[in-house]
Amino acid sequence: TRTRESLSSRLEGVLALTRTVDESALEDLESALLTSDLGLPTTTAILDQLRDHARRKDIDGGEELRELLKEQIQAILEAPARPIVEPAEPPKVIFLVGVNGTGKTTTTGKLAAWYRAENKSVLLCAADTFRAAAIEQLEVWAGRSGVEMIRSRQGADPAAVLYDAVAAAKARSADILVVDTAGRLHTKSGLMDELEKMRRTAKRLIPEAPHEVLLVMDATTGQNGLQQARLFTEASGVTGIVLTKLDGTAKGGIAVAIARELNLPVRFVGVGEKIGDLLEFDPAAFADSLLSK
């Protein structure tokens, strides 16, 4: 893809041109990281460290520089990793939250298949009662992996359908309950309060729920992603990120900034619109894809 090409061609420029790492090589790297959406503070922090190495003259040339850069990005992405806590008894409740159109419903559908493949019993909750045909959309996904879905009608209280779903998951001792929520901008306090209410609702039936809250973020997202992550974490206790649409030209560098500044790990990546297009996040592979052809 183009971003990747520009980054790798820049890196190759660095490889070819520099025996010793000079300022102009670092400037090229800066451009490469900025055009991948890492943002200025994170890019500067990474480059300062590289510059430090260069000054101490322990970088020989481009190849070593690339390795160091990759190691640094990987380390930033790995730092927030935390063990996945399994609940003492089922169900495990997973919320999918995020701004409009990022891929929450699609990822809910993909996750159903993901956990089914692990032989877990899965229940879906259609808690987006706002957007046109959101319920019908999730219903198609439920059918694709042959799992059941708890729904109500458009315009109903999302906390109410959530309550029913948690109760049903408990009664059937389903292993996993995946909850699709309506897209909402983090700046809309009324809608963010609604998420808090949904958390409280889940807790009334299962005190530790939701066990996971995944913030679904589009890989094309720019610097606004940091604010999304900040405010969704405040309102709904985000535990990890799902980075979607990585099959496009965007590289999702904002995830590096989010890991560094907010200590949130990426859990999954979306790489297409099909049911199997979900991958567990691999920091090394992600760092590689940022830096290679």
Binding site: T3, V99, T187, A219, T220, N224, T249, A250
Partner: peptide, 28 residues
């Protein structure tokens, strides 16, 4: 973010778009 130029260029090259609608401007 930065990818806007890539997608816009791709669509424009193939379709010669006549205009743009910028959505979700109610956020920050």
């Amino acid at each position: 973010g930065q990818d806007a130029v890539n997608s816009a260029q791709d669509f424009h090259r193939r379709l010669s778009i006549t205009g743009v609608v910028l959505t979700k401007m109610d956020g920050d």
